[in-house]
Every structure is written in C-alpha cells, then in structure tokens.
Nucleic acid binder design. Structure first.
Lengths: 348, 348
DNA sequence: CTGTTAGCGCATTCAC
DNA sequence: GTGAATGCGCTAACAG
C-alpha cells in the first residue's frame, strides 16, 4: 500500500502548505481549510486529524495567498512623523498591542513631519493592502485622503478630535488644551506671556495649541500682538535657543508656554544655565507630560496626553467589519493640566 | 457615450488592476507588467502608454498577488521588547527609514521582554511572509530561532555583537561596555561600588553588562561578593527605589552603575530628594546616553549607544539577495563613555 | 520585443 | 458533511 505520507517534521527549505496538511490528515484540501478556519461543518474525526497534522508539520498559513483569495489582509498601516519622539512611540506601542490582540498586524512608516513624504508612504500602504490606516492629526494632503478613500481604506486620525476627511478621530482638542493653559497662566496673574510652539507648518496640532492659547489670552484682555510667539522643532537645543531669544526681549515675559515638554526642557536648561530662577522670574509650562517633565528641576507643569491609551483606542476603532464606516466616529479624550513646580504667581 | 474605454479616474470601490492598465494602454497584461517592473525589453511607445495609463488610473500594484507569484514579499519583521523606551524606538526609527529607502516594509511586534510572547509574535511574522526579522539581543527561545530557520527567514540580532543562532548581528559588546565602566570607576579610586542592573531574566544585554562590570572590578581586585547588585525594571521609580536600597547599606557605595539612563535618572532623583550630593558622596553612571542624561542635574556620565545607527545598519544588512547568508555577518559598533558631571573621585 | 499560458496557495462555490 | 473545481492579481515561462 502506498505510504506517501508527509514527513514528521517540516524539512528546512520546504514550506508546509495546506495540501501537505490535508495529505497527512487523509482528507481534501478543502476540508483542511475549513477546519483551520473554524468552519463548523466538519466531522469531529476529520477535525482532529487536521489539527494534529497541522501542529506536527508546523503549518503556518500563507497570508499572501489568503489575502489574495479572501480579499482581507488583516493589515493596518500607520504613518507617524517619527518614532524618535516618545509621544508617538507610546501611541504606536499601544496601537500595536491592541492590534496584535485582535489578530492584525501593523506596518509602520514615518513621514518626518512632511506631508509630501506622507503621501509617498500612503501609496506604499495601499499597495500593501492595508485595510485601515492610522494617521496623526487632521491635516493631510488631499491626494493622500483621496487615495485612501478610493481604495476603501478606513482612516483614523489621532491626536485630534476632528475627523474631517477621515472616518474616525481618537484624540483631544488641541485648541482647548492651549486655551486651558492660557487661562491657568492668566489666573496666576501673568500678563506678559510668550509661547514657543512646535513648527506649525503641516502640523495642525501645533497650530491649534498655539491658536487656542492666543484665544485664551485674548479672552483675558491680552492682545495677540503683544504675545511673542516663536517656533522651534521638537528638540532640546531648539527649546534652549528659543528661550534665549524670548528672554532677550524687553520687557521679558513672566511666563512661557512650550508646545512640548522637549522644548520646555530646553527652555528650562537655558534658565538654569543663565541663573534665571524658575518660577520666580519666569514660569514654564510644557505639553505631553513625558517622563522628562518630572526630571528637570523644578519639575514641569504640563498638559498630560494619554498617548498610549490613544493608540489602544485607535486600534479598537478598527475592530469589527473592515469596511469604512458611514458615520464619523469621534472618540474624544481628556487632557489634564498637571501642575508642578515650574509655574507660580506672576513676579511683578 | 460608452466607448468601452476604462474611465479616466479610478472609481471609488473598484480597485484598478493591471489588466485595466493594459486595456487602457492597448497592450497585453504581460507587457504592462514588464514596464511596471522596469524590464528593459519593451518598446518605447508601449512603455510610455503604459506608464501614462497607470498614472491616470492611479494604479497601485497588489502586493499580495505579487508576493504570491514571485515568492518575494519585501517584508521585514521586527520584534522588540517595547516601543515605550527611547532606545528601541530610535532603533526602529532608523530601521524603518532604511527599509523604506530600500522599498521594503516593516511589520513590528512587541514582546514586553517576554521570550514566550516573542515566540508567538514570531509565528505571526512567519505567516505574514517576512523575509527577514530583526530581533533584539542574542537570547531567544530555541523554537523561535528554529522556526525562522526552517522558514528560510534571515535573522538579524541587534544590540549585541554575537550572532549565535542567527545570521547577522549589528551592535556592540555589552560585556566590554560594562567592563569599561568598571575600569573608569576604579580609575577614579572607587572601591565600594554597586550596580543597579536591568532585569536580567531573558535579557542578555542586561546580563552581560552586569557580568562585564563585575569582571572589570575583579580585575582591579574587587571581589564580586563585595559588590551589591540589584535589579530594576527600566522605569524611573524603580531606579529611585533601588537606589534607596543601595544607599541604606553600610558602608554605602561611593559609585553606582545603572544599566540604563532611565534607572540612573531615578537614582539621581533619590539622591536629590535625600540631599545626597552627586558626585561628592556618590557617583552615578548610566547607560544609553538618552536625552534625559543631559537633563538631570548633575548631567549623567553614561555610555553612548548608537541606537538609530544600529537600526540603519540592520536594515542595510538585509539588502541584497533575500536568502539567508551562509557566513555570519557581525557588524560591531563602538560604544563611548561620555563623562559628565555625575561622576568624580572617590570621596574617601 | 510581445502575447499566450500557467500557476503561486488558498477559500469558496458547486455538486455529490 | 465532503471533495473537485475555480480564480483572486500577478509574474515568469514559453512561443511567436
């Protein structure tokens, strides 16, 4: 009798295919497929033999084939500015964790805050067959948005509470967060204030934090034109230099709002180096509530952003059916002002 | 009017396929494929028409189909402990950047320092058809290593200079780095030293840094049993508490080597809170040279690790043919001791 | 140089 | 319930 059985263990170089499993289980490839996909309509005996065969052979389904056939890749793409910034890294960490638990895989690409690069990465992701994408912010090239829409790819925006152009948003209201900081500083009696924002070009989060801040000040009778607004990349040295510029104006601001803790850390450094006491001479407020906020001295008053949680929620927003949803889902999260030692009453 | 031509723009919902491009260009699907793949043997007129058609229709090749047919996915997997640690995030940032430039995509998974979870993620990556994987360290479950080998997947280890079980290593010698720190501290006259290592279970980097450190001390006549060695997760509070324990021993150590800047930052915090002057009473050395090393006061003496560069090199190690290489490639990178204000001569 | 043909591995329709 | 047959979109043989 023909004992053309498959070998006990997979042989290096020869990938185990479904037909190998079927052969070993003594059933058809169709039945094997049904078992492995949890299809109920299979006899118990066949089921066990297939499962055993798959385990023994170390069968791993080929997802390219499965994707091609079933038109479902269970792949999610993410385009973020950079991973070299804790706020995005944490978000992706949460996203990955959640997707992994849902049996989906994550392809990540970085854009370096460049909407043109984002567009290129978007094409790559479409080609990879991702079923959803997670982007940062609301501001994207129209072509990018259109490309995803045409391909039937669901778009989730993070770090924002508006989903214009996309299908869902998971984040917070940057404008209101900026406003909150303004009100806090005004409440402490500050009238001469400055802001070191992140680079606003192509970055709606930075833009809205700034605008909300200015709006909040205006509500307290502080005219926008009286407020020094600088921009700095999210790097410590940039914060240092921007603070230097700010502190060389006359009269000096008594409070400075920084668009990120990274910038605030640099600003804080500048003050320490130049013996400008914080908060006696100048109060500093950061944004993000990174670990470094507690490390600088005095520790930074800042705005807490639930970065990892945002990634988890974004992942959850992708569960269920894989078709784009009709109604916009907006999951707004709360930011909290964390008051530490870097802020105090206005000095004069 | 209906002239049987493909529409000018892709219609939402209907994905453009290669045959659509071919139809519009008035050639066969094979010719279109050749053009799009840069195959030289195609007439100039056909070439242009295909290119134009593809552009007009917004054609995006289906990589599942391409992968299935060509047995080449151009997909790379990475399994790292977590993205919520700058040292890994930076590495992945560099890796992603390099792979993107090489036309490859990156799927990332996290293991949370758990070799069992790593094994699970490994199966997922194999199923996704990745052609290579980037792992952290040399210590992996035998099943994980075997799984990749059987599937013909090239394994690149990072943060280590030994490639046992894998095909390539891009990193540095953790043992020697630890030894270097020991020699530095001994040179400053320190005889009572302690170490707060990372959790060594399943973490060969932490283990080797510790062992190298102890070995270096032993070379200077300091017996291992006289050295207090604690372990702490990579979190600031953990460093704080570990330092607390270390400082409650008698006699106190005059120098403490921390397995990571994160831990060192916590240790530094403890000293500040408890008015133990650094480095007058105790010297602290960190590891990684993260941004926070310069933020704490006094700034940390630490060991610089070229994290992003490591990712870039790992990506480059994946270029060329997609088959596992026969010879082990080891790309050893240099670590440098960065001396800042947290270390000084032994106090007594 | 170009078109025709044949699958890649799998899920799924349709008969049995 | 189960197996045989079909084709997802594409590339690589093979002819012409």
């Amino acid at each position: 009798m023909e004992n053309g059985q498959a070998p006990d263990r997979r042989t290096p170089g020869h990938t185990v295919r479904l037909k190998d499993v079927a052969a070993r289980a003594g059933c058809s490839i169709a039945t094997a497929s049904r078992v492995l996909n949890g299809n109920a309509k299979v006899g118990a005996s066949d089921r066990e033999r297939v499962l055993a065969a798959a385990a023994q052979l170390g069968y791993v389904p080929n997802s390219s084939a499965r994707a091609l056939r079933s038109q479902s890749t269970r792949l999610v793409g993410a385009i973020i500015p950079t991973l070299d910034h804790a706020i995005y890294a944490k978000m992706v960490d949460g996203l990955q964790e959640q997707l992994s638990a849902m049996g989906m895989s994550l392809i990540i690409n970085t854009s370096d805050y460049d909407l043109e690069r984002e567009k290129v990465q978007a094409r790559v992701l479409v080609g990879r067959g991702v079923e959803s994408v997670v982007l940062v912010g609301t501001e994207h090239s129209p072509e990018t948005t259109q490309l995803f829409r045409d391909a039937g790819i669901r778009q989730v925006y993070t770090y924002t509470s508006t989903a214009d152009g996309g299908d869902a948003a998971v984040g917070f209201d940057n404008f209101r967060a900026g406003q909150m900081v303004a009100e806090y500083l005004v409440g402490l009696g500050h009238a001469r204030v400055a802001m070191i924002a992140g680079v606003t070009k192509g970055n709606d989060r930075a833009t809205q934090r700034r605008d909300g801040f200015l709006h909040g000040l205006e509500g307290a009778g502080i005219c926008q034109s009286d407020v020094l607004v600088l921009e700095a990349p999210y790097r410590i040295e940039s914060g240092y230099h921007a603070m230097q510029s700010a502190m060389q104006t006359h009269p000096r601001p008594t409070a400075v709002f920084c668009g990120s803790d990274i910038i605030a850390a640099g600003a804080s450094n500048y003050c320490r180096t130049n013996e400008i006491p914080i908060p006696a001479e100048v109060s500093i407020v950061g944004f993000d509530d990174l670990e470094i906020a507690e490390l600088v001295s005095p520790p930074l008053t800042t705005v807490n952003v639930p970065a990892k949680q945002m990634g988890i929620m974004a992942g959850k927003a992708l569960s269920g059916d894989s078709k784009p949803v009709k109604s916009l889902i907006v999951h707004e999260m709360q930011t909290r002002l964390i008051v530490r030692g870097s802020t105090g009453q206005a000095s004069t």
